[in-house]
Amino acid sequence: MAAPRNLIGESGRLLRDEESAVAKEDDDSPTGKRPKLERFPFTRWELAGAFGVFFVFSAGLFCIYSTMPAADFRKLKLPRTLSDLRILKDHLASYAKDYPAQFILGYCSTYIFMQTFMIPGTIFMSLLAGALFGVIRGLLLVVFNATAGASSCFFLSKLIGRPLVSWLWPEKLRFFQAEIAKRRDKLLNYMLFLRITPSLPNLFINLACPIVDIPFHIFFLATLIGLIPASYITVRAGLALGDLKSVKDLYDFKTLSVLFLIGFVSICPTLLKKKKIYE
């Protein structure tokens, strides 16, 4: 009878091992209980740091608004549609003319705040710049604000961005890291290509660059120069705001072709160098 008892004992042990293995797989699976806690990317200290930075920026924005000349701000809101933008432009036209310095300060601080904290709607702010200031002044404002906001987002991501980007775009981050590693010798050209063309979203570029160890001076120059073509298109469209039917009309096939052509010119030195190496 010893043999059957041993078999029964062995079977029981194997069954317990299988149950333990299944339980472990359930814990490691997407529907398990533990990943629900691990799914949130930030630690308490990182979350506290993010809220701290947001509070400082918000306090600065509030101080700027509180010192601006009195106006009826009840009808003002961040535009989400072209209709909202047209209404906003009508309300702000006289204010911007009467108080140009204060208005520009408020406009710039709002744009940089939105860009830093990845708040959608900066394209409407760019259209507004064209509608209120014209092409040249509007372009200078947009490029300055977009570069300053992207730089703030860069340093914010350097502080707490790694877990967020790894959580939201793990595959895209690995691809971006591999592409950067292959182009270290001509990094500025590649970054210019990414900024000029819509190959990768600007939001992802702002957050991912410090994670893949792109130097800030490369990031800054590529942003400052690379955003000019797309910003010019958007600011110029603001002049004819009444005729614009959809934001999608800004980037039709012809416009995208021009942007990719400019981007291809920027990356030509990298391609030519690779060709010489292979020869």
Rank of each mutant, 00 (worst) to 15 (best):
8 I>D: 01
9 G>M: 09
10 E>Q: 06
11 S>N: 04
12 G>V: 08
12 G>K: 12
13 R>G: 04
21 A>G: 05
24 K>I: 11
26 D>C: 13
35 P>R: 13
36 K>G: 04
43 T>S: 15
44 R>C: 03
45 W>Y: 05
46 E>S: 10
48 A>G: 10
62 F>L: 15
62 F>D: 12
66 S>N: 12
67 T>S: 10
67 T>W: 02
70 A>H: 15
71 A>N: 02
74 R>P: 02
75 K>T: 08
76 L>R: 09
78 L>W: 05
80 R>E: 14
84 D>W: 10
85 L>Y: 09
87 I>Q: 11
88 L>G: 07
89 K>V: 09
90 D>T: 12
94 S>E: 14
95 Y>D: 03
99 Y>V: 03
100 P>C: 08
100 P>I: 14
108 C>T: 11
110 T>M: 10
110 T>S: 13
111 Y>H: 13
112 I>Q: 02
118 M>K: 00
121 G>I: 12
121 G>V: 12
125 M>T: 06
127 L>I: 07
132 L>F: 00
134 G>F: 01
134 G>E: 09
137 R>E: 12
142 V>H: 01
143 V>I: 13
144 F>N: 01
145 N>T: 14
147 T>Y: 08
149 G>M: 10
155 F>C: 00
155 F>G: 00
156 L>C: 03
157 S>Y: 06
165 V>M: 08
167 W>E: 01
171 E>M: 02
172 K>V: 00
172 K>D: 07
173 L>G: 04
173 L>D: 07
175 F>L: 14
179 E>G: 02
181 A>M: 07
184 R>E: 11
185 D>H: 11
186 K>A: 05
187 L>M: 09
190 Y>V: 15
191 M>D: 00
196 I>H: 02
196 I>R: 03
198 P>Q: 07
199 S>R: 00
200 L>T: 03
201 P>F: 01
201 P>D: 13
202 N>V: 03
203 L>E: 11
204 F>Q: 05
204 F>C: 06
205 I>N: 01
206 N>V: 06
208 A>N: 01
211 I>H: 02
212 V>W: 03
213 D>H: 09
214 I>E: 03
215 P>V: 04
228 I>K: 05
231 S>P: 00
242 G>C: 03
250 L>E: 04
253 F>T: 13
253 F>K: 12
254 K>Q: 09
254 K>F: 02
257 S>F: 15
260 F>H: 09
263 G>M: 03
268 C>Q: 15
268 C>S: 13
269 P>R: 09
270 T>Q: 08
270 T>Y: 07
274 K>R: 15
274 K>N: 11
276 K>F: 03
